[in-house]
Computed example of a mutant assay.
Amino acid sequence: MTRLYIDADACPVIRESLSAARVLRVPCVIAGNTTQNLERHLRASDPREPRDPARPDGGFWVSTVQVGVGADSADFEIAAAVNPDDVVVTQDIGLADIVLGRGARAIGVRGHVYNPLTIDSMMFIRHEEKRVRRAGGRTKGPAAFTSEDRRRFSRNLRQLLREARESTGR
């Protein structure tokens, strides 16, 4: 059974992620630190657990997981729970690397689908940029988040969820 995990820390596409999960009837877990009100993203009509216990997938439902405020707490929670059929929304390349290593799929908030063949080079670049910053240097930050980023994300997430479900026969 495919599940969608959302790393809610600084995630600008929670609404789009939940919309895709509702339409495609994919269970969803939102993980974020305790300073966030994760429930604000949910509709009152969103089921919080599978509707029909006799069906293992139960269709769409959503739960929230509040984690401590420590760095990467949500990442660790997701990494521990993810299965090979799952999809993870994150802008953290380190979490994407872990997720891919566990056989799951990962997508960035701008719609970039992380690839096992290129994740090592992305991790290397991240490491080098951190090294430059620690030494007092500056690196270029991300461009402003655009409506085109949001559209690309929605389109690619729906495709990724369909592929994940097809690979499991559900």
Rank of each mutant, 00 (worst) to 15 (best):
L4C: 01
L4S: 01
Y5V: 05
Y5P: 04
A8K: 10
D9M: 14
D9L: 14
C11N: 05
V13N: 09
V13P: 02
V13Y: 02
V13T: 09
I14N: 10
R15Y: 08
R15D: 11
E16V: 08
S17C: 09
L18F: 12
S19N: 06
A20C: 11
A20M: 08
A21I: 05
L24F: 14
R25Q: 15
R25A: 15
V26M: 00
V26P: 04
V26F: 04
P27V: 04
A31L: 12
A31M: 10
A31T: 09
G32A: 03
N37P: 07
N37V: 13
R40T: 03
H41A: 03
A44H: 13
A44W: 13
S45Q: 14
R48S: 02
E49I: 00
P53G: 08
P56T: 12
D57M: 10
G58V: 00
T64N: 06
Q66G: 08
G68F: 01
G68C: 06
A71P: 04
D72V: 02
D72P: 00
D72T: 07
A74K: 04
D75Y: 04
D75M: 05
F76G: 04
A79E: 15
A79L: 15
A79N: 15
A79D: 15
A80D: 13
A81R: 09
A81E: 05
V82I: 05
N83D: 11
D85K: 00
V87R: 05
V89F: 03
Q91D: 08
A96Y: 12
D97N: 14
I98H: 05
V99P: 12
V99Q: 11
G101A: 03
G101L: 01
R102K: 12
R102E: 06
A104R: 02
R105P: 09
I107D: 11
I107S: 12
I107K: 09
I107V: 11
V109Q: 14
V109L: 12
G111S: 04
H112G: 12
L117Y: 00
L117C: 06
L117M: 03
I119L: 03
I119G: 02
D120P: 05
S121R: 05
M122W: 09
M123N: 06
M123F: 00
F124C: 00
I125S: 08
I125R: 10
R126E: 07
H127Q: 11
E128Q: 13
E128L: 13
K130P: 04
V132P: 14
R133F: 10
R134I: 05
R134L: 14
A135L: 15
A135K: 15
A135P: 11
G137C: 06
R138S: 14
R138Y: 08
R138M: 12
T139M: 09
T139D: 07
K140L: 08
K140P: 04
K140S: 02
A144L: 13
A144S: 15
F145W: 09
F145V: 07
F145H: 07
F145E: 09
S147G: 07
R150G: 02
R150T: 01
R151L: 00
S154E: 12
S154R: 11
R155D: 11
N156F: 09
L157Q: 01
L157Y: 03
L157N: 01
R158I: 04
R158L: 08
R158V: 06
Q159H: 15
L160D: 03
R162L: 08
R162Y: 10
T168C: 10
G169Q: 06
G169R: 03
G169D: 07
G169I: 02
